[in-house]
């Protein structure tokens, strides 16, 4: 089964446990500034939206990389940055339409979500199931169900 991150902003309270878990996994420290998933807050906290790499199939970042530092992890589908190959040119940062690959001044390389090798810590940390790691086939199913429930026909 191929899995992906399913994000539901309606359930997000903006607690940032995901950012903390992500930074600990990747840097050994609690440091939201180095988290690869970020929560954006709008309208005085009315809306809190988790946002990270969607691991798009024909990834712009991968295509833009001049040294082929970004490769597909075949077990998870994640686009992984090989730090030893990355030269920190930021071409991928410019290419990504979502802004989810970023330069890390500590390492001089770029960072992006790697799905923690198939065990994403953000999903594990989320107390409200706003982020879950589930079957990629069903990524839109819950939203479809909600939309379907809103229709008045069918009773």
């Amino acid at each position: 089964m191929f899995k992906s991150l399913h994000i539901d902003p309606d359930k997000c309270t903006g607690c940032l446990q995901c950012e903390l878990a992500c930074s600990l996994e990747h840097t050994g420290e609690f440091n939201p500034a180095r988290s690869r998933i970020r929560i954006f807050e709008f309208e005085h906290g009315l809306r809190n939206v988790p946002y990270t790499c969607t691991q798009c199939d024909e990834a712009w970042c991968m295509q833009a990389c001049p040294v082929s530092a970004i490769d597909i992890d075949t077990s998870t589908g994640a686009k992984d940055v090989a730090e030893s190959v990355c030269v920190g040119c930021k071409a991928c940062v410019s290419a990504c339409p979502f802004g989810t690959i970023n330069f890390n001044p500590d390492s001089g390389k770029v960072d992006k979500c790697d799905l923690c090798g198939g065990d994403p810590k953000c999903a594990e940390a989320c107390p409200t199931d706003a982020i879950i790691y589930g079957d990629a086939d069903w990524s839109g199913l819950d939203k479809m169900r909600r939309s379907a429930a809103m229709t008045q026909i069918g009773r």
Binding site: T13, G14, C15, L16, Q17
Partner: peptide, 11 residues
């Protein structure tokens, strides 16, 4: 809705 402070799982 409800809203959490930093790091809070109560919200």
């Amino acid at each position: 809705t409800n809203k959490a402070c930093f790091g809070c799982t109560i919200a």
